[in-house]
């Protein structure tokens, strides 16, 4: 689907060990700019660990994670301090178990996401304290951006309500809107469709397609919902027990015998063969 072929994210020989447990073992893959890349695999395959390495929450035991901006600047994410991955390299993420600022309003959640830009505009609080015009302009710009994303996610009527009071699907959408408010180069979504019904999943697909179409943001997502993965992904990477077992377009993955065996289940004939061997 995408015309660009350059890599936005290149993961090379990434390994993550927790004591004796190897969660991710020598993983290499490339996410192309403007693509939606899906990372799938059975539970415990190490997908979230990969995410945590990319977004700076874990320091990988080995390997390189290289992120390239459209202007050609490149960042080695494994060397950045965790908050700088978001601030400097502009990688945004959402969480498997939603992490909103639930006591604050929906709008405030989106304004907090623009903290670094506003901090600069307020001259690290000093100009803002006395309400200088430059800060007010920046604040209005931040509000406009928040309004844009609220409109996109259908949350505009709930703008002044507490984020914790939103319905589950709305909270998921708000988390994506909040991540988009940081103007990310790469957006990492950890199971965005978890707990959504069919209609909400379709809305999510539309939102992600819109982000790909209208914004210079590449998307990396972990997902179990195959209706989401197969419909919107340009590229799929399959993990099993921390090892990459397949990598390719949705069609290729759908027909890959290894993936079918490890993730979607083995074929009936094969089951019968195994059952015969163990004597069932």
């Amino acid at each position: 689907m995408s015309s660009a072929t350059e890599a936005v994210l290149a993961v090379e020989h990434l390994s993550m060990r927790f004591g004796g447990l190897v969660a991710v073992d020598d993983l290499s893959f490339v996410a192309r700019r403007g693509d939606i890349t899906a990372l799938i695999g059975p539970n415990g395959a190490g997908k979230t660990t990969v995410f945590n390495c990319i977004t700076g929450f874990y320091k990988p035991s080995a390997g390189l994670i290289r992120l390239e901006h459209p202007d050609g600047r490149a960042f080695l994410l494994e060397r950045l301090l965790n908050f700088r991955v978001a601030k400097v390299a502009r990688v945004a993420r959402t969480f498997q178990n939603i992490r909103l600022f639930s006591g604050m309003t929906v709008l405030e959640n989106l304004v907090v996401a623009q903290h670094n830009a506003l901090m600069l505009a307020s001259a690290f609080t000093f100009a803002g304290l006395f309400g200088l015009k430059s800060y007010r302009t920046a604040e209005n710009a931040a509000l406009d951006k928040a309004r844009y994303w609220l409109d996109r996610t259908g949350l505009l009527p709930r703008a002044d309500d507490a984020a914790g009071g939103l319905a589950y699907g709305e909270q998921r959408r708000l988390e994506i809107a909040r991540a988009m408010c940081t103007d990310p180069v790469l957006l990492c979504l950890d199971e965005p469709a978890a707990g959504l019904n069919a209609r909400e999943s379709a809305e999510l697909n539309a939102l992600l397609k819109f982000i790909r179409r209208e914004h210079a943001t590449s998307i990396l997502l972990i997902e179990h919902d195959m209706s989401v993965v197969m419909e919107i992904s340009d590229h799929i990477v399959v993990l099993d027990y921390g090892v990459k077992i397949a990598d390719g377009t949705p069609e290729a993955i759908r027909n890959d015998p290894k993936v079918i065996a490890a993730y979607l289940g083995v074929e009936d004939a094969e089951v019968e063969k195994v059952e015969a061997e163990v004597g069932l």
């Binding site: 929450f57 908050f83 006591g103 907090v112 609080t125 909040r178 991540a179």
Partner: peptide, 23 residues
């Protein structure tokens, strides 16, 4: 101001703050 909102956000969820690039 951004600093005050960051304080309140930190009270709510520190990990989410870091994921948004807040020091």
């Amino acid at each position: 101001l951004p600093i005050g909102r960051a304080w309140e956000a930190m009270r709510e969820d520190e990990i989410a703050c870091r994921s948004l690039g807040i020091n």
